[in-house]
Design a protein around this nucleic acid. Sequence first.
DNA 1: TTGTTATTTAAGCAAATACTTAAATACATA
DNA 2: TATGTATTTAAGTATTTGCTTAAATAACAA
Lengths: 124, 124
Amino acid sequence: MDNNSCIRQQADIEQINRCKDTVSELNESFDYLANGLSLVGNSIRLKILYLLFEEKRLCVCDLSDILGMNISAISQHLRKMKDRNLLETDREAQTIFYSLTAEYEKMLNPFFEILDKNKILETI
Amino acid sequence: MDNNSCIRQQADIEQINRCKDTVSELNESFDYLANGLSLVGNSIRLKILYLLFEEKRLCVCDLSDILGMNISAISQHLRKMKDRNLLETDREAQTIFYSLTAEYEKMLNPFFEILDKNKILETI
DNA sequence: TTGTTATTTAAGCAAATACTTAAATACATA
DNA sequence: TATGTATTTAAGTATTTGCTTAAATAACAA
């Protein structure tokens, strides 16, 4: 793993140890948060999330049509986000509607605002 | 691309078209934002960002030691984040210190707060 | 029951990402 | 100028991710 055997001569050993402690203490939190952010960090999924933010709810079929993509591909993206609790579903006969969970709607709001701002700028 | 030829029978055509317009209008913004978020959505890079948030500045060598990873791997992560303006550098003799840019320190703050909260919870 | 619509799931492939190794660059000092 | 320290870069490999295809499930209607 570490062949170059680092630690520079003026390194602050106390700082290094403090950081090591922080990292090992928060390790699972980092993994969990990073996993959530990686789901949002994909432009197809970000589009889906934004569309659900604006339209409140949409089904796989609608999203497939809006984004010009295979239903199966969309379904797999939705599944990942549902598994991580970014989305929830609500069945109405054969149609399954997806929507943002309250928690993530709030969490993602600042990013949606950035997108809204862009929209206004470009339409002026 | 789209073999299943969707559009369900009760689809709201106006809604679909409105959504298509939004997506094509904001297309580059989605790509740009998603790219930024995908950088944060990696647990190694998230750890680096959090450590820089707490310690203000660290060099490749320190991070390599703290995270128990190859210097080259860390350097490549740092480069990606510097290219996307999440980080900036500041040379001091042979040592190059990385720090968060003001813009992203502000933008990532809510996530760092989540991590801080966890830290307090676990130490009680 | 049979067929239709809406969706999910599984398997395979292709592209993207992360890590390793080795060589290159940059600065400092003897 | 030669040597050591700090870091980057390039190339190769391995792992992960995303998409396609085809088959499966679920609700409904004839």
